[in-house]
């Protein structure tokens, strides 16, 4: 079974909006792709469409937030993190207003659309802005739960969803807490810390490593800010060998966040797997990941290399 996290967003935001009239969606003419059409159709009084004007969308959301609304500005990761970046910084993060930025098409998933639509820098950008929380769910059910958690939390949140169906990782009743990693597998030879839609690859790699006799700890780090420092510290202290996996530039995303902790502890070996600081292109999603080494084989090989390397 598989389903896209953007669908989870569309369903969750509708449920939230029905339960709470203060939940708003601010669209910028890509509601269809971001799955907010049912929200618009059923809750028109809680919906705003500002047209193709993302900077304004961010500001309007901030204004709504000062009047007690909980607006979800909805866009693609590229535009939601870069076109409206400074507006979100100034009008949502600086005043710590209750504005959520909910974006589909994170990472390489809009594969055939090409580089213009592939948001590979977004989480890193938002990670550097004070007061911002940055989340990427790994599947449909966790996405639904994390949208609800974001709505319940007071303050700006960036939520990153993806376009294409991805395998289910969790059961419907799994629970999630912002800033708290989920331990998908316990182990003590190697830690794989991953997030988002590549989680199924991390799971497959963990299984392969186990089959080869390695004990793997697999963490779903759905929130990269605030990072679950305790979980990362424990992985460094107890295991020491870590591979991070993400559908994001290896600069300033999950891998960087983990490395920062390891460097400051002066301990541990970390290999980052992710987009190799290069733009994508129009190509199948799997091919794009493959070109950047985000594959089961490379996760396995990297894990083995980290475990046996003599460095550090």
């Amino acid at each position: 079974m598989s389903k896209a996290t953007r669908d989870a967003y569309g369903e969750a935001i509708l449920e939230l909006g029905k339960a709470n009239p203060d939940i708003y969606v601010v669209d910028a003419d890509i509601g269809k792709s971001c799955k907010t059409v049912p929200f618009f159709e059923q809750l028109p009084d809680q919906h705003v469409n500002v047209g193709i004007a993302e900077q304004n969308a961010a500001g309007v959301a901030a204004g709504l937030a000062t009047c007690g609304k909980i607006p979800f500005v909805t866009s693609y990761a590229v535009f939601g993190s870069m076109r409206m970046c400074e507006q979100i910084r100034q009008e949502a993060c600086y005043p710590k207003l209750n504005v959520k930025v909910a974006c589909s098409h994170g990472g390489f998933t809009p594969a055939n659309d090409g580089a213009s639509h592939q948001g590979i820098e977004d989480m890193g950008i938002y990670r550097t802005i004070p007061n911002m929380t940055v989340i990427m769910p790994a599947d449909y059910y966790s996405a639904k739960k994390l949208v609800k958690a974001a709505a319940e939390y007071y303050g700006p949140v960036y939520l990153r969803f993806t376009r294409d169906p991805i395998p289910f990782i969790y059961d419907e009743d799994a629970e999630f807490e912002i800033g708290k990693a989920v331990t998908l597998k316990e182990g003590n030879d190697i830690a794989i810390i991953a997030n988002g839609d590549i989680m199924s690859r991390a799971v497959a790699a963990a299984e392969e490593l186990e089959a080869k006799g390695h004990s793997v700890r697999l963490l779903d780090m759905h929130t990269i800010k605030p990072l679950d420092v305790d979980a990362v510290t424990a992985a460094i202290e107890e295991i020491g060998s870590i591979v991070t996996v993400e559908d994001h530039n290896i600069l300033n995303g999950l891998g960087s966040a983990v490395c920062e902790i390891a460097a400051e502890m002066g301990k541990g070996k970390v290999k980052r797997i992710g987009i190799q600081d290069q733009f994508g292109e129009s190509a199948p999603y799997d091919r794009l990941l493959e070109k950047n080494g985000v594959t089961v084989e490379n996760i396995v090989a990297s894990a083995e290399a980290v475990m046996t390397s003599k460095c550090c």
């Binding site: 304004n56 500001g59 309007v60 901030a62 204004g63 709504l64 000062t66 009008e91």
Partner: peptide, 12 residues
Amino acid sequence: QGLSTAVGMALA
């Protein structure tokens, strides 16, 4: 940016 926020307030 301020005018956009004013629009949000007036809409609310």
